[in-house]
């Protein structure tokens, strides 16, 4: 049972069971089911949470049109600000490129190849986007677990669901044999990270895989020297300031989430 909010009617929501789940695929066999527990978790939240008001504040602030100065000159007004929640759980099909994501679950990388122009796609496309190929159907192929960093960034801030993983590096990797590049996490210290770096693709432990791109990550092929043209390391001041910022971020995450995300603990 879930209870939320201020002074509202307390709704008791029973846990759903598999048999009671909304089943829009009822004409088709479910070959694998790894989602009922998610629905058990989410549906009570959705059923108690949607559109109900959880609280309010009254804020005294500036109002009206004109410039910054003009609005600050007016006597402020009191505004009532409510807190309202909305949630949803989306059941989304990966479509014809589902084999790629099932491949991730098995620790494999798959791509597709256009039979007409020979372009190899990873991320795969079920249909070739080369205008000359007239949306040709592509064929599946297995790709090696190696590639090259096409570009990267190091994040000290992130959107809500990724915040607890900060700081981290993400980038786009051109898997060997593919022509397009795949976004993924880079488990590489900023001291070593550069465009053109050769990487190996690793996978999180099997029981943690979810069938999305965070199942895999890149690590540096050992023994590479950072070239003197590498943009992050070229200016030692810049690297220092990034590392100082990462340290700050690590402290914030420790306080907020109780996690030690220091590079040493993470092993990169």
């Amino acid at each position: 049972m879930t209870e939320v909010g201020m002074g509202e009617i307390k709704v008791k929501v029973r846990k759903i069971k598999r048999t009671r789940r909304e089943n829009k695929y009822k004409h088709y066999p479910i070959v694998e089911d790894n989602s009922t527990s998610a629905h058990e978790y989410w549906e009570p939240i959705v059923n108690t949470g949607l559109w109900s008001i959880k609280g309010y504040q009254v804020v005294k602030g500036p109002w009206g049109g004109g410039t910054v100065e003009e609005s600050l000159r007016r006597e402020p007004k009191e505004f009532m600000v409510i807190d309202r929640a909305a949630f949803a759980l989306y059941s989304h099909s990966y479509g014809l490129v589902s084999p790629f994501f099932r491949g991730l679950l098995e620790g494999k990388l798959k791509g597709t190849k256009c039979p007409k122009c020979g372009t190899v796609y990873c991320p795969p496309r079920a249909h070739c986007w080369n205008p000359k190929c007239r949306v040709a159907d592509c064929e599946w192929l297995d790709l090696p677990l190696t590639g090259v960093i096409h570009t990267f960034t190091v994040q000290c801030l992130a959107a809500a669901p990724f915040e607890h993983q900060l700081p981290f590096s993400m980038g786009w990797v051109k898997i060997d044999g593919a022509d397009t590049t795949l976004a993924m996490m880079l488990h590489i210290s900023p001291r070593e990270l550069f465009i053109g770096q050769k990487v190996k693709i690793g996978f999180v432990p099997k029981e943690q895989r979810k069938g999305d791109l965070t199942d895999c990550y890149a690590v540096a092929v050992p023994g590479q020297k950072v070239p003197d043209w590498a943009c992050l390391q070229k200016d030692p001041k810049e690297l220092e300031s990034l590392e100082a910022s990462m340290k700050q971020t690590i402290e914030f995450i420790k306080k907020r989430y109780g996690l030690d995300n220091s590079l040493k603990v993470r092993g990169w």
Binding site: H150, T151, F152, T153, Q155, L157, A158, A159, A160, P161, F162, F168, M170, G171, W172, A183, M184, M185, I195, L213, T214, W229, A230, C231, L232
Partner: peptide
């Protein structure tokens, strides 16, 4: 992977910068 335009744009800038 990160869920953040700041990161995507930063990566584009890193490539251009390089």
């Amino acid at each position: 992977v990160g869920g953040y335009y700041n990161a995507y744009y930063a990566a584009l800038e890193v490539r251009h910068m390089q």
